[in-house]
Simulated assay, not measured.
Amino acid sequence: MRKLNQVLLMTVLTGMLWACSKPDQNPGDKYFSSGQYEEAISEYTASLKYSPNDVRNLYNRGRAYEENGDFENAKNDFVKALELDPNNFQVLLSLANLHHKEKNYTNALLYASRAEEISGAPAMASFIKARALHQMGKSEEALNSYANAIKRDKEFGQAYYNRGLLKVAMGNIGSSCEDFQLARSLEYPGSQEALDKYCK
């Protein structure tokens, strides 16, 4: 009877610990949060040995690789995660952002556009799309994409700021000043300097 009580007590304690812990929490998450990307990569890799198709761990390891400057391995993880979950807008946005960093604007546009089409996608999808279009010299389309980003998130200071810079490049100073003022009201860095430079 005493042994049975001990077994029951251990079962209850184990159940309580399981309920209080976060089962989806990977030790790599803690390392990632503290900027210890090598350690995070090791933890995610260890987890992926047992669950090689875990989209979350693939994505997180990809982010750790990216933060560590290893874009090729980051891309490999993102692509594999996307194969497993084709409508994951986080993965699509990470691929878009990574390609933008590498100045591969065509692929950045492709992934950002795919992310933008997914229901519930954040304003960042339209924003990255706009940046890629801007770099490709498609100014009018870029303006529309910045407008979409702002429509999705009225407090997206960087979208106002970048749209203002694009308008300056297009010779539309008056309208750019409105964007810089909105960016400044949202305390986006550099907006006051842009106002001082272009809107005297």
Rank of each mutant, 00 (worst) to 15 (best):
residue 11 T to C: 13
residue 94 S to L: 00
residue 149 A to K: 10
residue 158 Q to I: 15
residue 18 W to D: 05
residue 146 Y to M: 10
residue 193 E to V: 09
residue 145 S to L: 12
residue 147 A to L: 03
residue 135 Q to N: 15
residue 171 G to N: 06
residue 9 L to M: 14
residue 65 Y to R: 09
residue 190 G to R: 14
residue 187 E to T: 09
residue 12 V to F: 14
residue 81 A to G: 01
residue 102 E to G: 04
residue 64 A to E: 09
residue 45 T to V: 08
residue 62 G to W: 08
residue 148 N to G: 04
residue 81 A to Y: 10
residue 94 S to D: 08
residue 107 N to S: 12
residue 57 N to L: 05
residue 92 L to N: 00
residue 165 L to A: 04
residue 138 K to L: 08
residue 140 E to Y: 10
residue 52 P to R: 07
residue 157 G to V: 04
residue 19 A to G: 11
residue 95 L to D: 02
residue 20 C to S: 12
residue 169 A to D: 14
residue 180 F to S: 11
residue 15 G to W: 12
residue 136 M to A: 03
residue 13 L to Y: 11
residue 70 D to Q: 13
residue 65 Y to N: 11
residue 165 L to C: 02
residue 102 E to N: 10
residue 83 E to Q: 15
residue 41 I to S: 11
residue 69 G to I: 10
residue 155 E to V: 02
residue 43 E to T: 03
residue 72 E to C: 06
residue 100 H to N: 03
residue 54 D to G: 05
residue 144 N to G: 10
residue 25 Q to V: 07
residue 49 K to S: 07
residue 190 G to F: 11
residue 171 G to K: 13
residue 134 H to C: 03
residue 36 Q to G: 06
residue 69 G to N: 07
residue 30 K to V: 04
residue 156 F to H: 11
residue 58 L to E: 09
residue 86 P to T: 06
residue 172 N to C: 06
residue 22 K to A: 14
residue 121 A to V: 03
residue 25 Q to W: 15
residue 168 V to T: 04
residue 9 L to N: 12
residue 183 A to D: 10
residue 143 L to E: 11
residue 153 D to Q: 09
residue 23 P to G: 13
residue 14 T to C: 15
residue 25 Q to A: 15
residue 32 F to N: 04
residue 70 D to I: 13
residue 105 Y to R: 01
residue 167 K to L: 14
residue 104 N to L: 03
residue 72 E to D: 12
residue 185 S to F: 08
residue 115 A to I: 00
residue 87 N to V: 04
residue 115 A to W: 07
residue 189 P to R: 02
residue 145 S to K: 13
residue 46 A to E: 12
residue 155 E to H: 15
residue 111 Y to S: 02
residue 165 L to H: 12
residue 178 E to S: 11
residue 23 P to M: 05
residue 87 N to G: 05
residue 116 E to P: 03
residue 188 Y to R: 03
residue 125 A to Y: 09
residue 87 N to Q: 08
residue 34 S to A: 01
residue 130 A to T: 07
residue 13 L to K: 12
residue 186 L to E: 08
residue 133 L to F: 04
residue 16 M to C: 12
residue 88 N to S: 06
residue 15 G to Y: 10
residue 114 R to C: 02
residue 75 K to H: 09
residue 152 R to H: 04
residue 160 Y to S: 06
residue 14 T to M: 14
residue 169 A to N: 08
residue 107 N to F: 06
residue 198 Y to L: 07
residue 39 E to F: 05
residue 126 S to Y: 11
residue 88 N to Q: 02
residue 3 K to L: 14
residue 2 R to P: 02
residue 118 I to K: 08
residue 62 G to R: 13
residue 156 F to G: 00
residue 117 E to W: 00
residue 51 S to K: 11
residue 91 V to P: 04
residue 184 R to F: 07
residue 23 P to K: 13
residue 9 L to I: 14
residue 88 N to T: 02
residue 171 G to W: 02
residue 197 K to P: 05
residue 154 K to L: 07
residue 48 L to C: 07
